[in-house]
Design a protein around this nucleic acid. Structure first.
Lengths: 274, 274
DNA sequence: AAAATCTGTTACGGAATACGTAACGAATTT
DNA sequence: AAATTCGTTACGTATTCCGTAACAGATTTT
């Protein structure tokens, strides 16, 4: 399969030789990741564009590898225990998460609000850690949730500090829907977005109130690494009206303080960040 | 490669046909999972018993799949972003109550005692699942019951492993009543409580006998999640005198075993728990 | 400074593997 | 009871993978 030279330039890498089956198999895993729950063989086959017989062979091997499990009644497939192991191992390598746990607990205890941490993963800010309050109320904050860019405090702070090329198309998609959350928040053009993000950058903190989740209010602050790039965000979450969103409020100050300390522990030079 | 019939009988499964490369590649991922950090190609090669050239091809494809990343300086390999995605997706599907059900039934059948599961909810350990014995006697164990912190096996194991700041005020309240259950159990000060909880932590199991329910005896063990936080507890419940509460007793061992297995299926790293 | 390792990476031919098509038995539906 | 749908398996050919070994770059040794 000779590839045209022009195409090579477009493609990322010269593509050093590998094992085709590994790459041909990943769409199967991707399908299972994107689906919320277990999938039938035919569903996987159509999702990946494979013939059912072919998909079945990959699944059989993934099962033996532990990446997939099958409902013993011969039916639906789902992610297996080794997928979990892989994820836990991957999480353990992310410094922020190790360091942040204690700081989040402290902040939660100090303020009495739920505190959560998000990484950029899965094409968006993904909630990875939660420090809950004893309070029963609220808390639809769920592990693994991917938040919207323009209408969540997490999304907004990542969008404010990430390279625009990463977020461009996603912002566009959110703006495109005239009845979507972004439109409801008064955001229609990139100019609107830029204006908002400039405020967040100036404050080094983002706000979201009654947007992606009705009746919720949140503040989010960025965490930078030794390259001065945003690697995570930490948020204080509560119910609308019960959280003071002012820049001078105690929650805002303590959140900023915690985020700053975490960034410093990761080796960031905060005075060099725009 | 025709396989001898005798060998087939020894092997676990009829081994439906699959894709060899998928199964040949997983040791590479396993090596990266088991290593705490990045690995060199030769380290992976020796760990998997592969020739470096072979391992390199698998790694090249895993990189394109996103399961592995490589330090751009041409060097060490580590788990990639898709490994995280896979894990997050797997974690989102795992529900303690769901996987606990089968384990509880098994334990009940093994021991012949009632087994129950509690989550922290409603400001306390709340009984959410029960696997009953056919025996008529006993069993005032009712769904939704919120157990006391200091005088139930469930409460004690949660109190032993939850952040003290969550339980502080509730412990205080239970200690305050001079005629309350805590007082009857000989608990008057925080020092008393701490001494007791330290024993439970050392054993990774709690005991309650003739306390919140007269004539009942119970053992409870903690279940941890991928953050190594207690998310549930599982208990063996019976009538005083009919349940051996010793650390070496069969019920204690089997309960510990079940709890450990459940924690592992939730992604906990048990060796890192105090 | 030159040589000798060590690293990660790539080439080549023979042999084993994966693909596509299609059939099979078992549920479930008509 | 017939028909559909599902998961699963068989078969022959073309493709891919494996083992050996060489290559370039970096680091260390002489």
């Amino acid at each position: 399969m000779a590839v045209d030279v022009n195409e090579v330039d477009i493609l990322e890498r010269p593509a050093s030789t590998g094992i085709q089956s590994i790459e041909n198999g990943t769409p199967v895993l991707r399908a299972l990741v994107q689906a919320k729950g277990p999938m039938s063989l035919t569903a996987i086959a159509t999702a990946t564009g494979m013939a059912p017989g072919k998909a079945h062979k990959y699944l059989a091997s993934y099962i033996r590898a532990g990446l997939v499990t099958q409902n013993e009644t011969g039916g639906r497939y789902d992610l297996g225990p080794f997928a979990l192991e892989l994820g836990v191992a991957a999480m353990r390598r992310i410094d922020v998460m190790e360091i942040a746990q204690a700081a989040m607990d402290e902040l939660r205890n100090l303020l009495g609000y739920t505190v959560s941490l998000a990484l950029w993963a899965n094409h968006g800010p993904t909630i990875m850690r939660i420090a809950e309050t004893p309070d029963i109320m609220s808390l639809t904050v769920r592990f693994g949730t991917v938040m919207p860019l323009l209408t969540s405090s997490f999304g907004r702070i990542f969008t404010a500090y990430l390279d625009r090329r990463i977020t461009q198309s996603m912002i566009q998609a959110e703006l495109a829907d005239p009845k979507g959350l972004a439109a409801q928040a008064g955001l229609r053009t990139f100019a609107d977005v830029d204006k908002l993000l400039a405020q967040f950058r100036a404050r080094r903190m983002s706000v979201a109130e009654n947007l992606s989740t009705p009746g919720r209010a949140a503040l989010a602050a960025p965490i930078f690494d030794h390259n001065n790039r945003i690697v995570a965000a930490i948020a204080v979450v509560s119910v609308q009206g019960r959280l003071d969103l002012d820049a001078d409020s105690r929650p805002a100050r303590e959140l900023a303080n915690t985020a700053r300390k975490l960034s410093q522990r990761l080796g960031a030079a905060l005075d060099q960040i725009p």
